Computed example of a mutant assay.
Amino acid sequence: MTVKTAAVFDWREFACGWGAAFVNITISYPMNKVIFRQMIHGVKTTSAFQELRNEGLVCLYRGILPPLCQKTLSMSLMFGVYEECRKPLMATDMNPYIAKTIAAIIAGNIEAILMPFERIQTLLIDPSYNTKFKNTKHIALYIRRNYGMKEFYRGLVPILVRNGPSNALYFIIRDELHQRLPKQDKVLYQTAQEFLAGASIGAFLSTLYYPLNVIKFSIQTKLGGPHQSMIQAFKTVYKERDCKIRNFYHGASMNCTRAFLSWGIITAAYELFRNVLY
Rank of each mutant, 00 (worst) to 15 (best):
I27T: 07
P226I: 07
S218R: 11
S47G: 14
H41A: 12
K71Q: 13
T26H: 12
Y189A: 15
R144P: 05
L68R: 03
H41C: 06
I35F: 02
V3Q: 12
A48E: 00
G225K: 07
A15G: 12
V187I: 15
I266K: 03
T136K: 08
K134T: 09
E13R: 13
G19M: 01
D175M: 03
A6P: 08
Q228I: 15
L261W: 02
V161A: 04
N24Y: 06
S128P: 04
T131M: 10
K239N: 13
F171T: 01
I102A: 12
G63V: 03
K134R: 15
P67M: 02
I98Y: 04
P96S: 04
Y270E: 11
F152R: 01
S253T: 14
F171D: 00
K134C: 10
L188K: 14
N146P: 00
K132S: 11
Q220R: 10
R258E: 13
G198D: 02
K137I: 14
S166A: 11
V276Y: 15
A259L: 03
D175A: 11
R174K: 15
I201Y: 07
L52Q: 15
A168I: 04
L57D: 08
T5R: 08
A107I: 07
D10V: 06
Y142D: 13
S47N: 10
G264S: 09
N54G: 09
V81H: 08
S128F: 05
T45E: 02
I110D: 07
N213R: 10
S128R: 11
L141F: 09
T45C: 10
A104D: 02
A104E: 02
R241W: 02
R241I: 04
V276F: 13
Y82N: 09
R162I: 15
A104G: 05
K132A: 15
K235P: 04
A48G: 05
E194C: 09
T45M: 08
L141G: 08
I139K: 07
K33P: 00
I25A: 06
W11D: 05
I172N: 12
K216P: 00
A269E: 00
A199V: 06
R37P: 00
R119Y: 11
F49C: 14
L114C: 05
L73E: 03
L196E: 05
A199F: 01
E194V: 03
S128H: 03
A268M: 11
K100Q: 11
V276A: 13
L77N: 03
G56N: 12
F217Q: 12
L124D: 04
C69D: 05
F49M: 13
I231W: 15
S206C: 12
Y147F: 10
H227I: 07
L65C: 11
Q70R: 08
L114W: 08
T221A: 14
N275W: 13
N109R: 10
D242Q: 12
T207N: 05
N247W: 02
S76Q: 00
C85A: 12
L181P: 01
W263N: 09
R53V: 06
G56R: 10
R12T: 10
D10A: 06
N130Q: 15
N167T: 06
F248C: 07
F133H: 07
N163Q: 09
E84N: 12
M78H: 14
A112V: 12
V58A: 14
L212E: 01
G251P: 01
F273R: 04
R37E: 04
T5P: 06
F260L: 05
T72V: 09
K239H: 11
H178F: 07
I105Y: 12
Y129L: 05
S47D: 09
V34T: 09
I143T: 06
R258T: 07
